Simulated scan of single mutants.
Amino acid sequence: MKTVLARNPAVWKLEWNAHLLAPFESVMISALVGYLQTRSVFSANLSPLLAAVVGVLSANAFAERLHLGS
């Protein structure tokens, strides 16, 4: 087990594993989600029919409730 008080340099050696890749993966997924959300918002603003299609698809895919108004 690695501890903060370990004095052996071998304990502090970084190894290639999933723990090293997790922060990079998190940033990349966040960027992808932000890009997709931005694209869907701009697309919906430019086409009223597309807004209706996105609403129906999100209701089916993500079990969101549809409602009119704010």
Rank of each mutant, 00 (worst) to 15 (best):
V27M: 13
S47K: 01
S26C: 02
I29A: 08
L46R: 11
E64C: 14
E64P: 00
R39L: 10
L66E: 06
N45Y: 10
L49W: 00
P23R: 15
V56F: 13
A63I: 11
F24A: 04
H67I: 14
S43C: 01
V4Q: 11
L68E: 10
P48L: 01
S70A: 06
S58T: 10
L14I: 13
I29W: 09
V41T: 04
W16F: 12
S26G: 03
S47G: 01
W12C: 04
G55A: 13
A44N: 04
L21R: 07
W12Q: 12
F42A: 02
L46N: 08
V11F: 11
F24D: 00
V11E: 13
V4E: 11
L66I: 06
L14T: 11
A52Q: 08
P23E: 14
A18Y: 09
E15F: 09
V41E: 12
F42V: 06
N45T: 06
S26P: 00
E15D: 06
L46A: 15
L14P: 12
M28Y: 14
S30M: 11
E64Y: 10
E25Y: 07
A22M: 07
S30I: 06
S47M: 04
L14V: 13
L46Q: 09
S47I: 00
V33T: 13
K13M: 05
Y35C: 00
G55D: 03
V11Q: 11
G55F: 02
L36S: 07
S70I: 05
A22Y: 04
V54Q: 14
L50N: 09
A18C: 02
V4S: 14
P9F: 01
L32S: 01
L5I: 01
V4T: 10
F24P: 00
V56K: 13
Q37L: 08
L5K: 06
L57S: 09
H19M: 03
S70Q: 08
A22L: 05
E25C: 02
W12S: 10
L36N: 06
T38K: 14
L14N: 10
E64Q: 15
L66S: 06
A44K: 06
A10P: 00
Q37D: 09
Q37A: 02
N8W: 00
A18F: 11
R7N: 12
F62T: 07
A44S: 15
L36I: 01
A10R: 09
Q37E: 09
L36C: 07
L32C: 02
V53N: 12
V41A: 12
G55Y: 04
W16A: 15
F62V: 07
S70N: 07
H19P: 00
Y35V: 01
E15C: 03
T3K: 12
A44R: 03
H19G: 05
W16I: 14
S43Y: 05
K2V: 01
A63S: 15
M1I: 05
G55I: 04
W16R: 14
P23S: 14
N45Q: 10
T38L: 08
L57A: 08
A51Q: 11
V11A: 13
A63R: 14
E25H: 03
V41I: 12
L21S: 05
F62M: 11
S43D: 08
V33F: 05
T3M: 05
L36M: 09
A63Y: 05
A61G: 00
A51L: 11
K2Q: 08
A51R: 14
N60R: 15
L32H: 02
M28Q: 14
A52I: 10
V54G: 03
L57Q: 08
G34K: 12
V33R: 03
N45G: 09
L21Y: 08
G34D: 14
A63P: 00
L21C: 02
